[in-house]
């Protein structure tokens, strides 16, 4: 005797395909979400140090929780004015070096050149109008905070990487940025 409650062949196939698509689609979405890192929270004020710790003639190197390296220093003409300049080249992410004799920042990866205020003046960053990033700073009761992207599980807490040293570069009228002494040639 024929059972009228049995689904049709077409109905069964549609239900089966839809079930598989839903089950494995959800599985795939969970996998993709697992692989994709946590979203960056933009605009978190992060504590850096006391304002008094920022020296007159040198830079304080700070690593943000997102992993970016920031140089914080005072302007020579206005010592109370603080600036935070990224030392990451906006082209492809290498670290720029200060070249004292040329009064410029130089990126060794693809020959990007920036003036002392971080403005690109030659190389691929200048072609694309990319300058070194400046981060907002604020003082609150003698404490210094920086507005940087924050990210869970990135590099942990923000931290001061390099205490100021007398041998730092001499920049005119602008914040001092850590000068690299690296001269090693990396080859394979």
């Amino acid at each position: 005797m024929e059972d009228n409650n049995l689904p049709t062949r077409r109905g069964f196939m549609i239900a089966a395909c839809a079930s598989f698509a839903a089950a494995y689609g959800t599985f795939a979405a969970f996998m993709a979400r697992f692989l994709y890192p946590a979203e960056t929270a933009v605009g978190n004020w992060t504590y850096v140090s006391t304002v008094a710790r920022i020296p007159q003639d040198d830079a304080l190197v700070f690593r943000t929780p997102g992993g970016a390296i920031v140089n914080i220093a005072r302007s020579l003409d206005q010592p109370e004015r603080l600036m935070a300049l990224s030392s990451t080249c906006p082209h492809l992410g290498c670290q720029v070096h200060w070249e004292g004799h040329n009064q410029r920042f130089f990126c060794p990866c693809h020959n990007g050149i920036f003036d002392p205020t971080g403005k690109a003046i030659a190389g691929p960053p200048a072609d694309a109008g990319q300058s070194l990033l400046q981060y907002p700073l604020k003082e609150d009761g003698g404490l210094l905070f920086i507005d940087v992207p924050n990210e869970e599980l990135a590099m942990g807490q923000g931290e001061i990487l390099d205490a100021p040293s007398p041998a730092a570069c001499k920049l005119p009228q602008v914040p001092r940025v850590r000068s690299s002494t690296a001269s090693s040639r990396v080859s394979v």
């Binding site: 290498c94 670290q95 070096h97 060794p108 693809h110 691929p124 390099d162 690299s180 990396v186």
Partner: peptide, 29 residues
């Protein structure tokens, strides 16, 4: 050393062509 990009840095030889190309034009181009 995340703080310091070496003064002279080169990739493996088979990426030299792309590395040079990236020096000739702006990033997106």
């Amino acid at each position: 050393d995340p703080l310091t990009t070496p003064e002279v840095i080169k990739p493996e030889w088979f990426f030299y062509v792309a590395f040079r190309w990236l020096k000739l034009f702006s990033g997106t181009a």
